[in-house]
């Protein structure tokens, strides 16, 4: 199954919009009536203090959580409920706040797993490694090697990822998401726990992915410097509500945002 026609949305047009989404777990309201949009080709940041509902928002977009109210329009198709599998087929890839990799598999296999949806030859031929299946495997392998080169992780190709340091694991996870050739890439704190150098590398990759592949990126990040440099537009959440939305400069000057981050004098 391929994603519906991808050419209809041009750069700058709305790729995904979230309208009036509310999500609660029992009595805890994680997200309250939030609306915003993500335009094709931009880097969109979602920021907010801890517990603001950022990751929940990402989980809603990606189909892990189903909001009680509101809807999500992705590529012109309205959905109230999206399953993770549909999100993946539709072209949404993501990384996780606490890396979720296939720890016992090698870097190569992890990234190859990202190609699952793009491999179509029947498993019988794959079993025999013959004819069209072999061709297909080679083709995908080429693509994967390209990503490995891009992320500069050639040296850890055959290492089970469980053994890698955290920074590299994050990079492999990005590689797996890229292998899906997504239209929308969701990054949940891609720079968390990294040192300055690793952060700079990651920033460079994010910008490169955005420039070279034209991938739309939505990212959650705590490092304000990073967000201000990377993002085209920023949406700010606090206690599950949207308190600001605009360019980094606008957001920086917003009173509600300053209050949320620094606290208000009562």
């Amino acid at each position: 199954m391929r994603a519906p026609d991808e050419t209809t949305i041009k750069a700058g047009q709305t790729l995904l919009s979230v309208e009036g989404v509310s999500l609660s777990f029992g009595g805890v309201k994680a997200i309250r009536n939030v609306s915003f949009d993500i335009r094709k080709g931009e880097i969109r940041a979602i920021i907010g203090p801890n517990g603001a509902g950022k990751t929940s928002m990402l989980n809603v977009i990606n189909g892990f959580y189903h909001p009680q109210e509101g809807q999500i329009t992705f590529k012109g198709i309205k959905r109230k409920k999206m399953r993770p599998h549909d999100a993946a087929t539709g072209g949404i890839a993501r990384t996780f706040q606490n890396v979720a990799l296939f720890k016992s598999m090698t870097t190569l296999d992890n990234i190859m797993a990202g190609r699952t949806l793009r491999m179509h030859k029947s498993f019988f031929w794959q079993l025999l490694r013959y004819g069209p299946a072999e061709q297909e495997e080679i083709e995908h392998r080429r693509k994967v090697e390209e990503i490995i080169d891009f992320l500069e992780i050639q040296h850890i190709r055959r290492v089970p990822v469980g053994r890698l340091p955290y920074g590299l694991q994050k990079r492999v996870e990005l590689g797996r998401a890229l292998a899906m050739e997504p239209e929308l890439l969701l990054l949940d704190e891609p720079m968390a726990g990294m040192n300055l150098e690793e952060k700079e590398d990651m920033c460079r990759y994010v910008i490169d992915v955005n420039n070279h592949y034209g991938t739309t990126i939505a990212l959650i990040e705590h490092d304000m410097g990073v967000v201000m440099d990377l993002a085209n537009r920023v949406v700010v959440l606090d206690y599950g509500q949207k308190i600001a939305d605009g360019t980094p400069d606008e957001v920086k000057a917003n009173k509600a945002v300053i209050d949320a981050y620094l606290g208000v004098a009562h």
């Binding site: 990606n62 892990f64 599998h85 996780f96 990799l101 296939f102 598999m105 498993f123 079993l127």
Partner: peptide, 29 residues
Amino acid sequence: AVFFSKTRIGRALRAVADSHKAALSVGIS
């Protein structure tokens, strides 16, 4: 053995064994 190590489904199987949510995120059902 070949099925597990060489095919797409085999890879998906190992992936599911390691992490459910990561497997879901790459579109494995």
